[in-house]
Nucleic acid binder design. Structure first.
Length: 536
RNA sequence: GUCCCCAUCGUUCAAUGGUUAGGACACCGCCCUUUCACGGCGGUAAUACGGGUUCGAAUCCCGUUGGGGACACCA
């Protein structure tokens, strides 16, 4: 049973050599990872994206996916999709399919993956636990890792006291050198444990980032990372390194947030005696306030973009604009091709395959600015033939499927078919914004109302998006905050439909979709908060 | 707090030691137009600061400041 595999690890089984999986040829790529140009022809380029199925597919996944896709296609390489589902606590069953669908929608087709297979599978980490177990045993046996028996609570307490003392929160190394008898005793009593990387006490790790040059981390600043959790699942760090090696990944193109854990990865590659891939850390997409892009401040779900009527080619184009990479057309090109100057910002995926240059990427984190995306989308919409435009409408916002689900919600409520529009406008709008007299209940103030709406949003985010789950969860919130069922649901109705009368609320939400519903609420709160602030 | 990364108009990209620092989005104005858009024309707007190096610095070096990321049995 995978779930408790750790307890089954027998150190006697650990081999003295890294378990080089299956009968694949030994990896000779990248013998000189620092000499990037000279070895590029030595082995086929292989890159990957490794999304984690923890919710809606993320726009950041699309961004990194696009970059990896371009990199592979430009070099005749392979683009791999790997699902990193080692966190059973955050796992969302429907997420994987949504990731597939969204990437297909964008046209970022992968060569190997859980659904299409490939020679280095399985491509789902939950199906590779035996591989990680073997590898971690090797690290244990070779002295690169050790068991740590503290409980999560103990570690938490330790971390808190370190932060209180203004010290960097770090594992104190208490079990680094536990005597074998003690280890055996703990194991005998079935005490749960994690396996940690034994980072050298002294020295430093230097790695090359292809966009930044050498980056150095002193080992006092590298924590003894947990590699294997007590439930027997690996952490990202272990699984990622093992899989990237076994899957023959030559170039790791990922977001900048990974830079600080790269030394751990490098240490792992070395412990296994493996060659190190090239690392390309891409700038992080940002909110308007420059913080890392987040759902609180931006729509980040790819489902949202699709359902809101963005065209995949526009999103891709916009993403391609982020961070540079595409050379602007020269004066000559504009003249010789008769280009409109503006067209410098407009390009297709195949233009990107032709011209995108990774060396041109600029490192300042680009703000994901919806305003420009919308303009771009408009350009694409206008460029469509009227027939194609009509088709796009019918395929998305006016699809038979969508209308078929809306129709029963209004059939008993209208007297002429034309009233359909009056009753359902909010299904077809980009945004609605109720007036204060519409959304503030008589017994509550604006401040109370906004605070309660924020609570509603939290409930909506945390609850399974189904009527039978949402209804009790919202009612429960009402009881806790002493809001009547009526005020509770009327507020939600006002926010989502802009009106005081609508088709059945939760059923409408089901049709409108989680991504757009949550975004509408966030926009409402955001706008109201801004207005409140400007009044003070 | 510690470590790492980054720094050109409000935003996004150009200018890779020598330009009046350029384009796009946004904004403003004018034109087109029954309206609103679209389209056309024009405009406002930036090298964070301080030191070097150099005949010459947005560009190279150092410092300061600012921003961001990481510091989980999440990825």
């Amino acid at each position: 049973m995978i779930g408790c595999a750790c307890n089954g690890i027998d150190p006697r089984l650990a081999r003295s050599e890294p378990p080089e999986s299956r009968s694949l040829p030994s990896c000779t790529i990248n013998a000189e990872p620092l000499m990037t140009t000279s070895t590029e022809s030595a082995a086929p380029i292989r890159v990957r994206i490794a999304p984690s199925p923890t919710g809606d597919p993320h726009v950041g996944t699309a961004y990194i996916g696009l970059l990896n896709f371009i990199y592979a296609r430009q070099r005749g390489g392979q683009f791999v999709l790997r699902i990193e589902d080692t966190d059973r606590a955050r796992f969302v069953a429907t997420s994987e399919q949504m990731i597939f669908d969204s990437l297909h929608w964008l046209g970022l087709e992968w060569d190997e993956g859980p659904d299409v297979g490939g020679p280095y599978g399985p491509y789902r980490q939950s199906e590779r636990t035996e591989i990680y177990r073997e590898h971690v045993e090797f690290l244990l046996a070779s002295g690169h890792a050790y068991r740590s028996f503290e409980t999560a609570e103990e570690l938490d307490a330790m971390r808190k006291s370190q932060i209180a003392a203004k010290l960097p929160p770090r594992y104190n190394g208490a079990h680094r050198e536990l005597p074998q008898v003690q280890i055996d005793a703990f194991l005998a009593e079935d005490r749960p444990y994690v396996i940690r990387l034994k980072v050298p006490v002294e020295g430093e790790t230097i790695f090359r980032d292809e966009l930044r040059g050498n980056v150095t981390f002193s080992h006092n600043n590298v924590d003894d990372q947990v590699l294997m959790k007590s439930d027997g699942f690996p952490t990202y760090h272990l699984a990622n390194v093992v899989d990237d090696h076994l899957m023959r990944i030559t170039d790791v193109i990922r977001a900048e947030e990974w830079i600080s854990s790269t030394p751990k990865h490098v240490l792992l590659y070395r412990a296994f005696g493996w060659d190190i891939p090239r690392f390309w850390h891409m700038p992080l997409l940002r909110n308007l306030d420059k913080s890392k892009i987040s759902k609180r401040k931006n729509p980040v779900s790819l489902i949202y973009y699709r359902e809101s009527g963005f065209l995949p080619q526009a999103l891709l184009n916009f993403l391609g604009l982020m961070g540079g990479g595409m050379a602007q057309p020269t004066e000559q090109e504009i003249v010789s091709k008769g280009m409109n100057v503006k067209e410098g910002d407009i390009f297709s995926l195949s233009d990107m395959l032709e011209k995108f240059d990774f060396r041109r990427i600029s490192l300042g984190g680009p703000v994901f600015d919806l305003t420009k995306l919308k303009w771009l989308n408009g350009e694409y919409l206008r460029a469509l033939s009227s027939e194609k435009f009509f088709d796009a409408l019918r395929a998305t916002i006016f699809s038979d499927d969508y209308l078929r689900r809306i129709a029963p919600l209004v059939q008993t409520r209208i007297e002429t078919l034309a009233q359909f529009g009056d009753m359902t406008d909010f299904f077809f709008k980009d945004d609605v914004m109720p007036a204060p007299e519409v959304f503030i209940p008589k017994k509550h103030t604006l401040e109370e109302t906004l605070a309660f709406a924020a609570e509603q949003l939290t409930v909506l985010e945390a609850t399974v998006f189904a009527v039978e789950d949402l209804e009790p969860a919202l009612k429960q919130l009402g009881v806790e905050k002493e809001w009547s069922v009526k005020d509770n649901f009327m507020l939600l109705r006002a926010i989502l439909t802009g009106k005081i009368a609508s088709p059945p609320l939760l059923e409408s939400l089901m049709v409108f979709g989680k991504a757009r519903s949550l975004d509408r609420m966030r926009r409402f709160l955001d706008t109201q908060k801004r207005q409140a602030n400007s009044r003070h």
